[in-house]
Structure formats: structure tokens, C-alpha cells
Amino acid sequence: MKSTKKNKFSAAWLMDHINDPYVKLAQQQGYRARAAFKLTEILDQFQLLKPGATVVDLGATPGSWSQVVRERLKNKSGPGIHGRVFALDLLPMEPVADVTFLLGDFREDAVLAEFESLVGDGAVDLVLSDMAPNLSGVGAADAARVAHLNELALEFAVSHLKKRGALVTKSFHGSGFSQTVKLYKEAFQKVTEYKPKASRSNSSETFLVAQGLKAAGRE
């Protein structure tokens, strides 16, 4: 019985995915995932990205968010970009032009040291996290996994952002969400919950846009 229900759910999801206008639009515009349009709307809404920015994309694979950032920072009068983009993930990612990819867990000392050696003395302007856990279907366990990833992104951002920098993190409404928002508000001057149009209406997915560190930050 469970297998039949699962097969029906998978078939329904696949049909929705195939007919999704953002999936088709992503294919037409060369993006690797429909998530590109979520970030596009967030960047437009909050004006988070400026020329010359240093951006970190956590959980970057397959790379659609890095593609969007790279396009936004592209030099208008020549090759390359005006800024720097670093993408990190546990999974391999096909190269994106002008994006530096690091394969590994950013919590590990070796990966973090490699990243910091590349960034040098310059602090980060924007941290992006589209990280999501492998869901088990057990509500409490999945909520705990989501909250943990949100906290990891927050810790990374607090350690590397400029004082006026920003953090964009994917989260989900449910158990533990209010506690996550509280943590973000303790660290940032402004925290906004935002659901882009490209985020499916039947999903509890939402994004936290955190701006301006309360602590000293890096200049």
C-alpha cells in the first residue's frame, strides 16, 4: 500500500515538474534549475547585489544561483565579472564561468582554510544558502535538519560578512522556524521572511533575508 501511494505521489510530482512554467523558463534561459528565478526576485526586491561584491553560494550545486550572481556581476565592457563569486558544496558542480568552486564541507577546517586563503583580507558582501536536507518524511526530524542548516549558514555569515552585508537562507515554515527567525534577529538588524513567486504555492518553503550585522562585522 505504501509503495502504491509513493508511486502515485512521484508520478504527480513529475507531472507538476514537467508542466511547471519556471522549469520551462529555466531550460529556455540556460539555467540549471528553476531556483534561479527565486534568487532573481529576491535580489531585485531587496537590492542586495552591487558591482564589485564578493558573494558566497553555500550548497551551490547544481549552480543556478551562481549563474544568476555571475550574470549580475558580469562586466559590461569586457570579459569576466566585476566582483568575486565562491560556490561551495559537498557534491560536484559543473563549472560556471568566473565562479570559484570548492568541493567539500565548509564546516571542515581544511575547506574553510582554503576558502579564507582565496578570499584573503576582503570580507564578504553577500552569503546565499539554498541548502536543504534529505527529507525523511518524519516531521520533527526534518524540521531539526532544516534548522541545523539554517544555523550553519548563520554561523558562516556572521564570521565572514561585512557589517553591512546580507544573508539569504532557504527555510521552511513548521516546527523550529520561529526559533530560527529569533536567532537571525539576534544577529542582524533586519530580518524579512519572503516567499518568491517562483516558490511553489503548496510548499512551506520561505526565505529569510537578513541585512546588517548587529555585531562589529568586518569592514
Score class of each variant (00 low, 15 high):
104 G>N: 03
145 R>N: 06
144 A>F: 06
179 Q>D: 13
81 I>G: 15
118 L>K: 13
173 H>P: 07
118 L>G: 08
76 K>C: 10
112 L>K: 15
85 V>C: 12
188 F>K: 02
84 R>H: 12
59 G>H: 00
119 V>L: 14
167 L>K: 05
96 V>H: 06
98 D>I: 06
101 F>H: 03
105 D>C: 12
152 L>C: 03
103 L>Q: 14
108 E>C: 04
110 A>V: 05
178 S>F: 00
135 L>G: 05
190 K>W: 12
177 F>L: 01
65 W>I: 10
122 G>Y: 15
151 E>S: 11
72 R>L: 05
130 D>Y: 04
153 A>C: 13
177 F>C: 00
155 E>T: 13
87 A>T: 09
145 R>H: 04
73 L>H: 10
57 D>F: 07
76 K>D: 10
89 D>Q: 08
97 A>M: 06
173 H>I: 06
55 V>R: 09
71 E>P: 04
118 L>H: 13
192 T>D: 08
86 F>Q: 02
109 D>N: 14
46 F>G: 06
145 R>I: 04
57 D>T: 13
170 K>N: 02
88 L>M: 12
153 A>V: 00
112 L>T: 12
63 G>V: 01
156 F>G: 06
124 V>C: 14
163 K>M: 10
65 W>R: 12
148 H>A: 05
154 L>F: 03
130 D>F: 00
144 A>E: 07
178 S>G: 10
80 G>W: 07
139 G>C: 12
86 F>K: 07
71 E>V: 04
50 K>E: 04
161 L>G: 07
82 H>Y: 07
115 F>D: 14
108 E>H: 02
72 R>Q: 07
69 V>E: 05
57 D>S: 14
161 L>H: 10
192 T>K: 15
76 K>Y: 00
109 D>P: 04
163 K>V: 11
97 A>G: 07
132 A>N: 02
47 Q>L: 09
143 A>E: 01
175 S>P: 03
89 D>W: 03
151 E>R: 14
127 V>H: 13
